[in-house]
Amino acid sequence: MATDTVGRFERALSDLEVGFERVAAADASERIASILEAPAVGTELPYDGVSQPDGVTTEPTAAELAAAETGVTPASFGIAEYGTVAIESRPDGDEPVALYPDFHVAVVAASDVVPDLGAAFERLEGHLRGAKSLVFATGRSATADMGDLVHGVHGPGAVHVIVLEDR
């Protein structure tokens, strides 16, 4: 995907106060390990040569999920226009792992960053017709219902996006 799409993605994420970095697939595991807050849980990262670091518990129990500070999941795709990551509801639990811990680390392939919502819907159509579920997550969970804007309500209060520049 054109680098300016990833650049636009980066700018949108920065506006949302979401962390961002590009890494080579070979370095991803190490980078994840260095930014996470323990304890961490995660789901399988389906990219060639990328795996969860040792500090991330994969196949967590519900109790481990509830206790985790960090959740690491892949994102099916990113939407540059809005700084959005699309997290698919896979059987191994991407949705709860991306949702319950206060810090969500999303890993997305550079080739999966699409420019805008229109392009996202092209990918989405296939997913949903196949009875899949996913969430477009943009920035941190927020509310203004307690009088002022507060981040980190039921969803994560901090988000970091890692783009695999060679995937």
Partner: peptide, 29 residues
């Protein structure tokens, strides 16, 4: 855009969460 645009096609594939169980959540599935 809103923080979460959730597109659910239920019953969803995400594992249910039983906080009393010590089995991995993915195993249940």
């Amino acid at each position: 855009i809103s923080q979460y645009v959730t597109l659910l096609t239920p019953p969803v594939e995400s594992p249910t969460l039983d906080f009393a169980s010590d089995e991995p959540i993915a195993e249940l599935e």
